[in-house]
Design a protein around this nucleic acid. Structure first.
Lengths: 142, 142
DNA sequence: CAAGATTGAAAGGTCAATCTTT
DNA sequence: AAAGATTGACCTTTCAATCTTG
């Protein structure tokens, strides 16, 4: 139960700090950053909106709104699917990739300073293992 | 860096699930719950709004809005300070205490099922130790 | 009807500005 | 001037309803 409280507190503090940092230096939300990163990793720099939403744990509408903003900023654009007219792809633009690259080092440094630096290599492995067990939780126990 | 991603994902999933559960069964936000809990633990069931805000990591205005809702629901009430007219206390009402008590078992069971059950006692201690190191982060590197 | 995507309304929070009291 | 609290404007996200296509 102490573990749980530490978990909540630390997350709140860390994400807040990283969010502010990212926002001030590169005008990106933490979620914005994660979305750009997912796209950058994806083949042809594009993903279906549904998959993107699931990947960053947002709602369908949440992703729509977020991508609207990124598109207005020119970091992302839309593409239709030839075989299924229902789906829309989100595609990373050159500007988006560039923004991601410049933000990346700042962000990695931030994560390093606020998170990774507090742990030894062993600790980090342990942590990844433990937290990894919390993956497929579905809730609904009475 | 894998540890970091696991950290983000797990937190998002867990808090979302617990939030839904608490909301459906007792019409309380996770933050609402935490605030009621802090008050319940405090002497005379009351705290200054500033201290309460810091305790649950909310802004001054954030706490005002949250307490407004709890007050409208009759779970909390205000009290003035005799020695310093600037401060307002938040005080837990009987209804608030009752609501907390009924919600408590549900919530604890939820945390148990989604979080604690995945770890041995040793794991839990390790986790508490590791996460505890993330406490006083202040950011602002570069 | 189901799946993907979008829209309007609303919740929950933050920031900046303000008011009162010290 | 500084501390505690509140308010107004705004941002991000969710929920429910809707539209389109398979």
């Amino acid at each position: 139960m102490q573990a749980w409280e530490a978990y909540l507190r630390s997350h709140s503090t860390l994400t807040r700090a990283l969010n502010v940092q990212l926002l001030q230096t590169h005008d990106l939300t933490l979620n914005d950053y994660e979305v750009l990163l997912r796209l950058w990793r994806a083949p042809e720099w594009r993903m279906r909106r549904v998959d993107l939403a699931q990947s960053v744990l947002l709602t369908a509408s949440g992703i729509t709104r977020l991508l609207d903003r990124l598109q207005a900023a020119g970091l992302v654009c839309k593409a239709t699917c030839a075989s299924d007219a229902r789906v829309t792809y989100a595609v990373l633009t050159d500007a988006g990739a560039h923004r991601l690259e410049t933000a990346r080092s700042t962000h990695l440094a931030g994560v390093q300073a606020l998170f990774a630096d507090r742990f030894s290599d062993d600790d980090t492995r342990t942590l990844a293992d433990l937290l990894g067990r919390l993956d497929g939780v579905s809730a609904k126990p009475a």
